[in-house]
Nucleic acid binder design. Structure first.
Lengths: 339, 339
DNA sequence: CTGAAAGCGCTAACAA
DNA sequence: TTGTTAGCGCTTTCAG
């Protein structure tokens, strides 16, 4: 139960010095002005009184709030990317910052006011975070102060952007399947959005490198949901030359595939290997069979975005290159050697 | 691009009055002191300069930050209850408050420092929110200032608590099944935690009221995950007198049941009705078949908790009764008349 | 080496 | 009716 009251003046009195001395010592601003003795008394007094500078007063004085604002389109609302906010919060906390989050829930016209609200609160920096990988055109405020993009990127690269390395992720996943001896590998990819395109690129690169012919490639534009995975599986798995392995757009699509395979009496992984994407919590590891998948490093993305903003805030030059965060491949029970 | 600079002094100058007049007029504190004329000039000047009081200065002066703190054990990290934070944020925003969230991620020893950090930031009120329904013993800070509990409750009811009405929710779900003519209805319930117990209570109350005998009841302690639902279904559905309907602990358990049913060639809903719980986003509505389920009103819980805190903050008496938020039954394709 | 003083932007009590 | 003044708690310049 810390006493919530001690001010710098209290500390000064107890230590027998002036308020300014307290401030200087506690902030390490001793330009050779305070005697060693006084310094010790100040520190002791501060500890005794459990003194911490009032952040509100500090903010007013320094014109900095030690607060970052995150605007997101669906991170909070969505069940997938909460770890992004959590990673960001932890990284911020570790450096003495707190985070104000506003989720626009994809509601048009909500973004502007959200940014304004955050600016009005005098946040020191801004982060825009999206639920799915996509381009984002940063508006004025983003370019006018320390800022970063998380899981999205500025097509013109005016802002630091932190995004998952989707290409390598799906290439690695495809390689795993190839190493297991699979040849007919289908990609049930999302739709024509950025992540889907990049994942397809990784898939094709691995397939091509393995010298596979067009007949072995099979890319079906699906969607991102369970039922869409189910339907795509339904159409792909009924063909005579059905694939022996499927790379799914994400774990939900993989769930749909598993559901259809069960219905059709196709055993996974004995007759069909399935790889997901996301490593969605409480899903991938708990499916039957447990799903081999590519993890999306949301927490890390959030943490790095925060780091970028804080570095810029503390004096570094703005670095606008995109950071590609690795997506680790997690091998579980849904993949096996080709039949 | 609003000018970020105008201060009360600028407004005063432009309107030809004193700073205090500006403050009074803009805060509605005119105790008959300012001429109608001056008032209009002030408002006009404020609008012209795009003036908004600097919240940091206001905070320092008023000793209130218009900020609420939420401590949670897994809301942010977890894919399920993000809407709680989102509901809370929106409710707060609507009344001019912002929210600082700290997720302890169930890490022991993190809660104390989190509360301290929030208090240090001078939040005006505190909310403790849990991912799953459970008792929570509020520590000192919670009892010393405006606060509320979301999705958890103080066994001694010293704090307002906002929780889902689990009993009614599962009773309604059971009644739906009974209305469809089912008699042998199994409950694959979580484990011995609060939500599981309450859901079982609702189930039993509906079963008893329908005059069903012990043979028709069947309660299996399962868990909350897909694979656990799968295994429980495996054991329950192989019996000769297998149930014609299952009430699942949650949507993930229901997913496991659907997976097993598909594997075993049991058609849902023709041969087996399944009801979930949670109405988990991107899951319940997209399963195959789409899942009938009981929705957990997370957003509303968050919003009501915020309202409680703000009401207390703005002068109302603390009301410590528990608020039961209804869990609406959502009927989809996984339920049908008994075979 | 130390302390007094100014001021961040605002509100509210008090004089005029 | 209006303007002046005294802080909220802190940092930092500038005399002592």
């Amino acid at each position: 139960m810390a006493a919530r009251k001690a001010t710098a003046l209290d500390v000064a009195k107890l230590a027998g010095v002036s308020r300014s001395a307290v401030s200087m010592v506690l902030n390490g601003n001793i330009k050779g002005n305070v005697s060693k003795d006084a310094q010790e008394r100040i520190r002791a007094a501060a500890k005794e009184l459990n003194y911490l500078p009032n952040p509100v007063a500090v903010s007013l004085r320094n014109q900095r709030t030690a607060t970052l604002g995150i605007i997101t389109d669906e991170i909070v609302t969505s069940p997938f990317a909460g770890r992004l906010v959590s990673g960001a919060t932890n990284a911020a906390l570790a450096r003495g910052y707190m985070i104000l989050v506003v989720d626009t829930e994809h509601i048009p016209g909500r973004e502007g006011p959200a940014i304004e609200a955050l600016q009005h609160r005098r946040v020191d920096g801004l982060i825009y975070a999206t639920g799915s990988l996509q381009p984002y055109i940063p508006s004025g405020p983003f370019r006018a102060q320390p800022a970063a993009l998380a899981n999205c990127f500025d097509p013109e690269d005016r802002l630091p952007a932190v995004v998952p390395d989707e290409v390598t992720g799906s290439r690695r996943a495809t390689e795993l399947l190839l190493e297991l001896g699979h040849r007919r590998i289908a990609l049930l990819g999302g739709d024509d959005d950025n992540a889907a395109l990049l994942r397809e690129q990784g898939y094709r690169s691995a397939m091509d490198r393995a010298g596979l012919t067009a007949g072995d490639h099979q890319v079906i534009v699906t969607g991102w949901d369970i039922n869409q995975g189910y339907r795509a599986a339904e159409s792909v798995l009924q063909e005579p030359d059905r694939p022996t392995a499927i790379l799914a757009a994400n774990d939900r699509v993989a769930t749909g595939i598993l559901l259809y395979a069960a219905t059709a009496g196709i055993q996974v992984p004995q007759q069909l290997s399935v790889v997901g994407y996301d490593d969605q919590q409480n899903v991938a590891a708990n499916l039957v069979p447990a799903l081999t998948t590519v993890a999306l490093p949301h927490a890390e993305i959030g943490a790095i975005a925060v780091k970028r903003v804080l570095d810029e805030l503390e004096g570094s030059e703005r670095r606008t290159e995109r950071v590609l965060v690795p997506c680790p491949l997690i091998t579980r029970q849904s993949t096996a050697p080709a039949p």
